[in-house]
Amino acid sequence: MPTRIRLLNGAFALVEDPFTTVDDDTAIPPGDVIISLTRFQAEGERLLAECRKVGVRLESHEEVEALTYDLPRLAVVALVFPKFLDGRAYTYARLLRERFGFKGEVRAVGDVLREEAGYMLRCGFDAFVPADGSTPEDWDRATHRFRHVYQRSVDGRSPAYVERGE
């Protein structure tokens, strides 16, 4: 069973992944699945009607707005980092949380590295499939590296200008 690092109640843990990630050419297996946006648009209704959990994998060039209508019915949005330098998914994650109020799992997949842990956490990701073999301990350390932050973001941390007023 593939695993992913999950952030639950502020703690990172290696948790089994109940979802099968299915590419566009493979028949959909039973159980909970994560599929591409294209496939979701074609087969999403049917799959959801089958009473299973469905997640969507969003490539970095796809518009997160394409999901707004379906978000309440989705369990997972998996945002793809084709390479770590492609930072579009940070904006998508933030919009999912802040603007569209998505409460499900926002998962980072692709070129996901521990050095980016802090940014991802701050933008609202709560599940990670690292590409660098990093462990939950690495992620915990990486996200606690900075005692202060300068901006308001999804994670609710007080930015420096608020801390100063306290």
Partner: peptide
């Protein structure tokens, strides 16, 4: 300067 320092969303433009 403060706002842009280690900005969570805009560091991989």
């Amino acid at each position: 300067r403060q706002w842009s320092t280690v900005h969570p969303e805009f560091t991989f433009l």
